[in-house]
Simulated scan of single mutants.
Amino acid sequence: MTNALSELLADRDWLLADGATGTNLFNMGLMSGDAPELWNVEHPDRIRTLYKGPVDAGSDLFLTNTFGGNASRLKLHEAQGRVGELNRAGAELGREIADASGRKVVVAGSVGPTGEIMMPMGSLTHELAVEMFHEQAEALKEGGVDVLWLETISAPEEYKAAAEAFALADMPWVGTMSFDTAGRTMMGLTSGAFAKMVGKLANPPLAFGANCGVGASDLLRTVLGLAAAGADQPLIAKGNAGIPKYVDGHIHYNGTPELMGQYAVMARNAGATIIGGCCGTTPEHLVSMRAALEASEKNAAPTLDEITGALGEFSSASDGMDGNAPVAPERRGRRRGRAS
């Protein structure tokens, strides 16, 4: 299979990824608690619209609607026997939209966490995790994705299991973790430890980085940490569009398109090559991000003060990379740089 992502990376200094999946599906009528992956067969036209949004906004790649498409997550909806069907359908719809775009657009098969805790802290064995990831990877491969995209992982053991599974599927892959707990993953991994782990994998990713988390500021601090570790692979930044707030009974992210444009430029300066958005990021945000990237040249990496001055405060005083224990900062008034 042609490695479309590597080809783009060889030709370009930066790539624009997509935005949110869940946010945009909720805007189309998905209800909280429903399995988005079922829409791949129940509402294919809505999934085509989901994929077409970032393509029309200028994204160079987009993720399939298969984040929770492993047997463990689908079991919550009594659909554990439909892993192959739902992932193939999500991939095939993505292939359709990419091929009709008239340009090279990478279809990335989204693979999320199992939702279970791996041994020794939990009951999920390495072997079973590999089996679940492999089943999903094979289905995405059959559906025509160009690359597998592991995302929102917290446990290093789960990341390693996915890497092994993707080798079995003989598919190129990238992988991001979510640093949402005082600058670390929920399982305590720092950005430096993550980079070190990736460097030791038998089947390393084409690119790696961070997604989701708390907000754009925290994510850029993580990218700076990954860059400082001297990673060989391109880095990925997919930050949330601001901070979530409840507005009229719905979750609304307060990051404006203009703010996300600033974030995109700062992400590139911080060392990221693949830049996109996560929760709250709509095609409107992506248009602004692409315009900002095209209108600027890469500059020096931003300082921490420059990041907070533009995008808002960090959620913690330390991300663990300075040897200090994470401590929540004192909050003083309104977040700087945030739109209400």
Rank of each mutant, 00 (worst) to 15 (best):
A155R: 02
A155W: 02
A155H: 05
P156I: 07
E157K: 04
E158W: 01
Y159C: 00
Y159R: 00
A163M: 10
A163C: 12
E164H: 04
F166S: 07
L168K: 15
D170N: 13
D170Y: 04
V174D: 07
V174T: 14
M177L: 14
M177S: 08
M177F: 11
M177W: 08
F179K: 03
D180H: 09
D180G: 15
T181G: 04
T181F: 13
A182F: 09
A182Q: 14
G183D: 11
G183S: 14
R184W: 10
R184P: 05
M187R: 12
T190A: 13
S191N: 04
G192M: 12
F194M: 13
A195S: 13
A195D: 05
V198N: 00
V198T: 03
V198K: 00
K200A: 14
K200D: 14
L201I: 07
L201C: 06
P205Y: 13
P205S: 12
L206R: 12
L206S: 13
L206T: 10
A207Q: 09
F208R: 01
G209D: 06
G209W: 01
A210I: 02
N211P: 07
N211Y: 07
C212H: 06
C212K: 04
G213I: 09
G213T: 04
G215I: 01
G215V: 00
D218E: 15
L219A: 05
L219M: 11
L220F: 03
R221P: 02
R221Y: 05
